[in-house]
Amino acid sequence: MRTTMGMGLRAGLALAAGLMPGLARADDEARVVGLWKLVSYEVEARADGTKLPAMGDRPTGYVLFTPEKRVFFILTGEGRKPAETDAQRAALLQTLVSYSGRYRLDGDKWTTAVDVAWDPKWVGTEQTRSFTLDGARLRVLTPWRVMPNWADRGETRSIVTFERTKE
């Protein structure tokens, strides 16, 4: 009887622990930690709902979440070529998104306190992204905002999909 009761108590405690938000959050944090390779990157314009591959059909990139709660995020456009002139070097900025900082998770969102970025305006800001995890897929959705790379399109949001990699 005592053994059965002890097992029931342990099972009940395990069940209760699984329902505690802090433990669920720790589970999500463990699930995002690692290296994710870019699969697709679309930008949706708020004004008319059009979606476009803002950095081409085959952009490249990665996001890395470390156990120490730092994120490294880099996306580059399709077909980038070495620059020879100042104008070409400036144009390369239109096909780059890159930042790093400490991150925190809150449910289906992560917020990065940016301390390094391709655009200095982002340094010192907090960037929040919604995400979903589906097996080895991480889908990221930005809030509506005017993105420095395509400000002429007005408010946009990015829809970015990554796949877990072991590289």
Rank of each mutant, 00 (worst) to 15 (best):
D27H: 15
P82S: 10
Q127L: 15
A136F: 12
L9Q: 04
V63N: 01
E84I: 08
K69S: 13
T128K: 12
D86S: 13
L64C: 09
R102Y: 09
T3M: 03
P67E: 13
V71I: 15
W36V: 01
T125K: 14
A113S: 14
T3A: 10
A16P: 06
E42S: 07
D119W: 05
L38C: 02
V71M: 15
G79A: 00
G79N: 03
A26T: 13
P53D: 08
T85L: 09
A26E: 13
V116W: 07
L138M: 10
R102N: 14
E163Y: 03
E126W: 10
D48C: 04
R153Q: 10
E68P: 01
A117Q: 01
W122L: 14
G61V: 09
S98P: 00
F72E: 08
A11Y: 02
D86K: 14
D86V: 14
L15Q: 13
A91W: 06
E78R: 08
V33Q: 13
K166D: 15
D115Y: 07
A113I: 11
W150Q: 15
V97K: 00
E29M: 15
R46L: 09
L75Q: 02
T132E: 05
T4K: 04
E78N: 03
G34T: 02
T165S: 15
D86P: 12
F65S: 05
T60V: 11
P148G: 05
R2L: 08
P82F: 03
A90E: 14
R139P: 01
T4G: 02
A17N: 11
P82D: 06
F162E: 00
V140P: 00
R89W: 02
A45N: 11
R80C: 03
Y99C: 08
A87Y: 09
A151S: 14
T66G: 07
W144H: 04
E155V: 12
T4L: 05
D134P: 09
K109M: 11
R164L: 10
T95D: 09
V114L: 10
P53L: 08
R10V: 06
T66E: 05
G22W: 11
A113R: 05
T95Q: 13
T161L: 06
T128P: 10
L92N: 10
R25C: 09
L75W: 00
N149Q: 14
M5H: 03
G12S: 06
D48S: 09
K69Y: 10
V123S: 08
Y103M: 14
L133D: 04
R129P: 01
V39N: 08
V33D: 05
D108Y: 08
F73H: 13
M7P: 01
R10K: 11
K121E: 15
F72D: 04
V114D: 04
S98A: 06
L13P: 02
P59M: 02
V140L: 06
G8N: 08
V33S: 11
L105Q: 11
L105E: 12
A91F: 11
L105S: 10
I159V: 08
P21A: 06
G22I: 05
A113T: 10
T95A: 08
I159S: 04
